[in-house]
């Protein structure tokens, strides 16, 4: 096993564990009443965000749904800014105005954090349009769930992106349930990637539990987009271990199904790779300690940070003032 590859896996493990622990602690803070509104956790899907963040290049842009914590963290948002946003604090990534569903971090290429299913696909196409318009070579990644593939916004964005060969990758994180409704009851297709053909795109379909596999497939699509060959549509099989949001006990699936799926936990998979490669347990534990410290610091920061001032309300409605 090459040194480089092991180092990569150690970083992957660190990032995935950071997301997992961040989500677990946000669930706890939610239960304590420190976080309001909706909270959609990314637990079980970490390998996809980490694969994307480690495959794109500086300057590339990423759009995500309201299940956005994992992607933002993987791209480099600090856990402090992320947790403070959940706590509705001024030091949050959106200064407490967005909350869980509306993370933004332009410096790291993260363009939201969007709450209307299917509504952000056209925005991502617009970001890709901009790169093409300016003759620049950034690629835009757009994530959404399989639940978004039935709404009109999906169709129009995919249609225009295909028509104009925009440098984008549309990534369906198929976590099997649109809120509480399984794919079998929302789509006539079991293989969603065939939709790609309808938009003149390359389609691809694969399991998303192994970060290396995700990286490999993503890279091909990103390379195609960057070299001017147009957008792709990827369907990634994944699974969320928690409910749709905090108010969802997940009664629409069996305990057996969940246990079966947990055997493919992306974090167990990466740990297995590290152990198979003979990585020292002390090294793994050091990463775990480091993650715990970062999460603890984030919680402390979010607790202590100030709430936004009332003046922020009026400053951020429009840029121009009347």
């Amino acid at each position: 096993m090459s040194e480089v590859k092991v180092e990569r896996w150690l970083d992957d493990y660190r990032e995935m564990l950071l997301i997992r622990r961040f989500e677990e602690e946000s669930a706890r803070a939610y239960a304590q009443g420190k976080i309001g509104g909706f909270l959609h956790l990314y637990i079980g899907q970490e390998s996809i965000a980490v694969a994307a963040a480690t495959t794109i290049e500086k300057g590339d842009l990423v759009f995500q749904t309201y299940r956005d914590h994992g992607t933002a963290l993987a791209l480099g948002m600090t856990p402090e800014a992320a947790m403070a946003e959940l706590f509705g604090k001024d030091t949050g990534c959106s200064r407490g105005l967005g909350g869980s569903m509306h993370y933004f971090d332009v410096e790291n290429g993260f363009y939201g954090g969007w709450g209307i299913v299917g509504g952000h696909l056209a925005l991502a196409a617009g970001a890709a349009f901009r790169s093409k318009y300016l003759g620049e070579d950034q690629v835009t990644l757009c994530f959404f769930g399989e639940g978004a593939t039935n709404i009109g916004g999906f169709h129009e964005a995919m249609s225009l992106a295909g028509l104009w060969k925009l440098p984008a990758v549309f990534i369906c994180e198929n976590n099997q349930y649109a809120m509480g409704t399984p794919l079998s009851r929302t789509s006539p297709l079991s293989d969603l990637s065939v939709k790609a053909a309808g938009y003149g795109m390359v389609g691809d379909r694969f399991e998303g539990y192994d970060v290396d596999v995700v990286r490999e497939h993503l890279k091909k699509a990103i390379d195609r987009a960057r070299s001017g060959e147009g957008p792709s549509f990827l369907e990634i099989e994944t699974y969320r271990f928690r409910g749709h949001s905090m108010s969802d006990p997940g009664k629409y699936r069996t305990a057996e199904e969940l246990e079966e799926r947990k055997k493919k936990d992306p974090i167990l998979l990466i740990l297995g790779k590290l152990r198979d490669a003979g990585v020292d347990e002390a090294k793994i534990e050091a990463i775990e300690d480091e993650v715990e410290e970062r999460i603890e610091a984030a919680l402390k920061h979010a607790d202590e940070a100030p709430f936004p001032e009332e003046s922020l309300l009026y400053e951020t409605v429009t840029v121009e003032k009347f």
Partner: peptide
Amino acid sequence: PIAEAGFAGIGIGAAMTGL
């Protein structure tokens, strides 16, 4: 094409990123 939601959204995405 006749796709107002699509091209309005593309316009917004382009505006968000500097056009």
